[in-house]
């Protein structure tokens, strides 16, 4: 059994479970303040302590998980939903269309992704929805390029030629032959982009451009904790751990999935 897959899968499932549980239950309402019990240390009442306003840190992390996953999921769906068809079409059509899609992707790659996301949210206004769009836009060229590269190698194989000889349309070939064969590559890419999406969301929230207060987010919790580092260092530790664990889990999961799904790598083991 693949160790990366087990660890990564477990951690990722755990993160997902926390997000799902937060939909129906958190120890306290995450926005409920209790000034008299501010900056409490972890205890039986508050497992991870309380923040400067007396809010329960565990509840905030739980809802923060949900908010972050929401942004990352939509961003990946947006990127894959537009990027995969574009890439597959570019590979199938070739010619000027291929050149246009790939040069546009190159152009997009030339901009630092996070910086441009900051620009987009600064123009469109801060908020979770704009963060989703900003991060999602940068997933499009990634998926387009990965899809095209993988699809080209499939397009050249005999069974595709055979299908073409039997008179199948290009669209049918892409749908029936190309996509199923490149699915493993895409699944791995999804986990990578998902992890990057979590980091990007945390980064945007950290500078105040992501999920807006009072809704909790990991990035803003980190920022808020900064000046309290001398009084309550744990305030910065917990959201930091949450970001680290979820990204690590997804990366391990991606590695494990690649080992499992990509036949080209298997022979090397």
């Amino acid at each position: 059994m693949n160790r990366n897959l087990v660890i990564g899968g477990t951690v990722s499932l755990l993160v997902l479970a926390v997000a799902l549980v937060s939909l129906v239950w958190t120890p306290y309402p995450p926005t409920r303040i209790d000034i008299l019990h501010k900056l409490a240390a972890p205890s039986a009442q508050h497992v991870l302590g309380t923040d400067p306003f007396g809010r329960d840190v565990a509840s905030m992390i739980m809802e923060g998980t949900r908010n972050t996953l929401g942004v990352a999921i939509v961003a990946v769906l947006l990127g894959a939903g537009l990027g995969v068809p574009l890439g597959a079409l570019a590979a199938a059509r070739g010619g000027w269309f291929d050149a246009l899609v790939m040069r546009t992707a190159d152009l997009a790659f030339a901009f630092p992704a996070l910086l441009t996301a900051v620009m987009i949210t600064a123009i469109a206004g801060p908020g979770a929805v704009n963060a989703m769009i900003a991060i999602g836009i940068f997933n499009i060229p990634v998926f387009a390029r990965v899809t095209r590269g993988a699809a080209l190698s499939v397009q050249a194989r005999d069974f595709v030629t055979a299908a073409r000889a039997t008179g199948r349309s290009e669209a049918a070939i892409v749908w029936l032959h190309v996509l199923p064969n490149i699915a493993p590559v895409l699944i791995v890419q999804v986990t990578i982009q998902f992890a990057l999406g979590i980091i990007a969301d945390a980064g945007l929230s950290y500078v105040g451009l992501g999920t807006q207060p009072p809704a909790p987010s990991w990035g803003r919790m980190l920022n808020d904790a900064q000046t309290f580092i001398y009084r309550a260092p744990l305030l910065a530790v917990f959201p930091g751990l949450a970001i680290m664990l979820s990204v690590l889990g997804l990366n391990l999961l991606g590695d494990g999935l690649r080992d499992l799904l990509d036949p080209r790598l298997e022979s090397r083991r």
Binding site: T31, R32, I33, I35, P52, F53, G208, Q212, P213, P214
Partner: peptide, 22 residues
């Protein structure tokens, strides 16, 4: 900025939802 978060939480207790716009 900080006061807004506190006031939003206080208003929530009486059923008002405060949308905070920095």
């Amino acid at each position: 900025r900080r006061g807004g978060e506190v006031i939003a939480a206080m208003l929530e207790q009486v059923g008002l939802r405060a949308k905070l716009v920095p």
